[in-house]
C-alpha cells in the first residue's frame, strides 16, 4: 500500500510539467473546441449558441461524405504501404557496411524537404500529362498514359505515392528500434540453426512490434490528419477527388468563415480516429511484444 502510494507520488512528480500543460493549454483549448462545435462562429465575431445544428447540416453535406471517403481511402492505402516499405528499408540499412550513413541520409532527404510549394511543383511536373513518369511509361510502350495528378481517378494515388516517398520518419523509428534488439537473441537463434530469414521473422519482427505498433498508430492518426499535400499540390481537386477531411475542415473554417461547422467536423473526426486507434490498441494485446513486460523470457 505504502509503496503504491509512494510510486503514485513519484509518478505525479515526473508528470508535473506535463500536467501544467494539460491544465493550462490542452484542456482549455480542447474543451473550447468542443464548445465551438455547438455554436455559430465565424472566426471574427464571438460565437453564438447553435445547439446541434452544425451536426445536422454536416450529415446532409455531400462534400462531408466525399471528404471522408477520400481520407479513408488514403489511410487504408498509404498507411500499410508506408509501414512495409520503411520497415524493409530500415532492415536493409541496419547493416554495418561502409557508406551506410550516406544511404540513410539520401533516404531521409525526401522527408526533410517537407511538402512545401516547391515540392508541390516538382511533384506536379513529374506526374503531369507529359511529365517524367509518363515519358518512362511511353518508352516502355504505353501509348496514352493518364495525366495522373490532374485526373480525378488517379490524383489521390499520386498523393499516396508522395507519402510513401516520405517514409523517412518511420524508417528512423525502426532503426532506433532495431538498435534495441540484443545481439544475444540472434546468436541464440543462430545456434538453434535459424537462417537470416528465420531470424528476421522470429527475432527481428517480434522484438520490433512496439515500434511497429507505434508507427501504425501514429501513421493512422497522421494519415487522417493529412492536409498539406491536398492543399498545395491538388487544391482538393480535380472534382474534389483529393478533398481530404482536414482540408475541407480548413476551408470551412478559414476560407468560408464557418468555424463552428469546422469544429463540429473535428469532433466527428476525433470520434472516427478514436475508434480506429482504440481498435489498434485492443488488438495490440495479441501481437505486440514488450521485452520489459510479461512474456519477455
Amino acid at each position: 500500500m505504502m509503496r503504491a502510494m509512494r510510486q503514485s507520488l513519484a509518478a505525479y512528480g515526473f508528470l508535473f510539467p506535463w500536467l501544467i500543460g494539460l491544465l493550462v493549454l490542452t484542456l482549455g483549448s480542447f474543451m473550447f473546441s468542443i464548445y465551438l462545435a455547438f455554436t455559430n462562429y465565424d472566426l471574427i465575431s464571438s460565437p453564438t449558441w447553435a445547439g446541434v445544428s452544425n451536426f445536422k447540416s454536416l450529415f446532409s453535406d455531400h462534400l462531408f461524405y466525399t471528404s471522408l471517403k477520400v481520407t479513408l481511402l488514403y489511410v487504408v492505402v498509404s498507411v500499410p504501404l508506408r509501414l512495409i516499405f520503411s520497415l524493409l528499408v530500415a532492415a536493409l540499412l541496419n547493416q554495418e557496411i561502409a557508406g551506410i550513413g550516406i544511404y540513410r541520409v539520401i533516404f531521409y532527404i525526401p522527408s526533410l524537404i517537407g511538402t512545401s510549394v516547391g515540392v508541390a511543383i516538382m511533384w506536379q511536373n513529374i506526374f503531369s500529362r507529359n511529365g517524367l513518369f509518363n515519358l518512362i511509361l511511353q518508352s516502355i510502350g504505353m501509348a496514352h498514359p493518364p495525366a495522373w495528378v490532374s485526373d480525378p481517378q488517379y490524383a489521390i494515388y499520386v498523393l499516396v505515392l508522395l507519402s510513401i516517398w516520405q517514409f523517412g520518419s518511420e524508417m528512423i523509428i525502426f532503426l532506433a528500434g532495431l538498435k534495441q534488439i540484443p545481439d544475444s537473441l540472434y546468436e541464440a537463434a543462430a545456434i538453434d540453426g535459424a537462417n537470416r530469414l528465420n531470424q528476421f521473422f522470429h527475432v527481428t519482427l517480434p522484438m520490433l512490434t512496439p515500434m511497429i505498433f507505434f508507427n501504425l498508430v501514429m501513421g493512422t492518426i497522421n494519415a487522417f490528419m493529412v492536409f498539406t499535400q491536398g492543399f498545395v499540390i491538388t487544391h482538393g481537386g480535380p472534382i474534389n477527388s483529393t478533398m481530404f477531411y482536414v482540408l475541407y475542415l480548413y476551408k470551412q473554417g478559414f476560407e468560408y468563415f464557418h468555424m463552428g461547422y469546422a469544429a463540429a467536423m473535428s469532433i466527428v473526426l476525433l470520434v472516427i480516429v478514436g475508434v480506429f486507434a482504440g481498435f489498434l490498441f485492443l488488438t495490440s494485446k495479441f501481437w505486440v511484444h514488450y521485452e520489459g513486460e510479461e512474456g519477455g523470457k
Binding site: Q124, S150, P152
Partner: peptide, 16 residues
Amino acid sequence: PPAEYTASLTDGDIEK
C-alpha cells in the same frame, strides 16, 4: 486542351 490539362491549371497557377 483536354480536361486533364485544364484541371491542372487552378486559379493563380499561371506558370503552367
